[in-house]
Design a protein around this nucleic acid. Structure first.
Lengths: 278, 278
DNA sequence: AAGTGGTCTAGACCACCTG
DNA sequence: AGGTGGTCTAGACCACTTC
């Protein structure tokens, strides 16, 4: 828009903008012309065309199907927060969650996991990789690490139904109390992409969590990757300054929840739920 | 690893794996050989080499500098949750936040924003685009939409210092009370990439927030994009089942905060803070 | 068999940075 | 001037899907 060195910008951008308009004039699921056809129409080479398409695929506007063609994506990656007049009502719990255990072994903790769980690197842990499904569609891949001594006799089936924390309490007398969790954006690698059914380098959320029991002992270290096109975090924040602003530290900024100017005095009321994609 | 149709997989993967090993054997900031040199060493064409490098740049392992060369990235995108024995202590507020107003205009709300703010599409809003900086490094780009009637006489300078919510209360008698916020992973587009200083298609977090005052009237709609390589959400979760498990709905799953099996009975204790990148 | 997307090549030109 | 990354081309072969 602003005066740029070159007038016509890069071809890729011109092609991408053309495609974006094309997509907007189509209904979700509609097929669009083939790569070779588009190349001819737009007067660009196939790598150039493909590079522009790559961007729209990563952004979530287009999907490719080998041997079939390209289609307008069904669920836009950036969906409306909530349509209609009742906007901003928190979405209800939706979809039925299930799990599928992909791997279940006992291995030595190793340096990294041992340090996290506060156990010896040589101590044994139960390592579980499981797919998390919503309405039978893959939503996330989760890697759990639990000290083996804590869960003797744990079976893969135990990880496919019910609440793991309930299970820990009822079967092993372990009462979880607190967890520290981090969330960061990432893009999928080959393995993750294959398992959760999205293209490589798609936007995703990386969670890491360390959970401790009532005695402060670490009981699980979890690493999981959630697909970005169907998963979203919604939270409801209380901002009232009813509390006389316990001055934690004047110029603090707590972005985890509200990345605005909210200095202190706010508290989380409720955490929302999944908004299924399509 | 597993038996694949073709033995050698794609060249891109072979090149990428070679580069990843190369990166691991280097210190952060170290230069790596030029694209043309690597092409010759690996026996691939330049587009193929570049495609592999693209992946590592998106992943945050490499950085390119036009005319200078390629370097091992300083801050790894997936950093340790917390090093050392005191792991999992929540990071303290770090860095000094500042803002730089890039755009400040009064415009008509339009259909989308009007609907969100519950005002007429023809009503005027103050539209503010501002860069959020931490230690003078760009961290996020934020787009605010505030009904103009609520903040008569607001000046750009007012948005560059202090807490906006404090300002609303003291200068305009508006007391914010609650907000609904969504967080989703995304990738940067050209504009966002340029403004926050990362490559196009880098992982990022997209926030949307609607804030209401004590009378339930919407006072701001904010859309912001945080860079993924320097920003992370850390939260501390209370999982104790002290509450007799108010059964909201048996098989519910609330991933927004703890994407494990936490059915109900959990509550957010504290929200963490920024972990500065390098 | 014919069309589609997936991958790769060899070479070209440009813009940028460093001597 | 010479190296670096940034972009683009024309053409080739493969794998997959449909008819």
């Amino acid at each position: 828009m602003v005066s740029e060195p070159s007038r016509s910008a890069v071809k890729r951008e011109r092609v991408r903008d053309y495609l974006m308009e094309l997509v907007e004039s189509c209904a979700p699921g509609d097929p669009i012309p083939s790569e070779r056809t588009l190349c001819e129409q737009l007067g660009v080479s196939r790598p150039t065309l493909r590079s522009a398409v790559d961007e729209l695929v990563t952004t979530g506007l287009l999907v490719r199907e080998h041997g079939r063609g390209m289609f307008v994506a069904r669920a836009k990656i950036t969906q409306e927060l909530a349509p209609g007049p009742d906007a901003y009502r928190l979405p209800q719990a939706s979809g039925s969650w299930a799990s599928k255990v992909l791997e279940f072994t006992t291995v030595q903790a190793g340096a990294r996991v041992g340090r996290r769980l506060h156990i010896s690197p040589a101590a044994e842990i139960t390592y579980i990789a499981r797919l998390r499904l919503v309405d039978d569609e893959p939503m996330a891949i989760e890697y759990l690490h639990v000290p083996a001594a804590l869960v003797p006799g744990l079976r893969p089936e135990d990880m496919e139904s019910g609440d793991f924390y309930d299970f820990l309490r009822e079967r092993h007398g372990v009462r979880v109390r607190e967890a520290v969790q981090s969330i960061e954006p990432t893009v999928t690698n080959e393995e993750e992409a294959r398992l959760i059914g999205v293209p490589v380098l798609s936007p995703a959320l990386l969670f890491e969590r360390l959970t401790k029991d009532s005695t402060g002992r670490p009981v699980e270290y979890v690493h999981s990757v959630y697909r970005g096109d169907r998963y979203r975090i919604v939270s409801r924040l209380a901002l009232g300054d009813t509390v006389p602003a316990t001055p934690l530290s004047a110029a603090q900024h707590h972005p985890g929840i509200p990345p605005g100017d909210l200095a202190s005095r706010r508290e989380v009321l409720t955490t929302g739920d999944v908004q299924p994609g399509s």
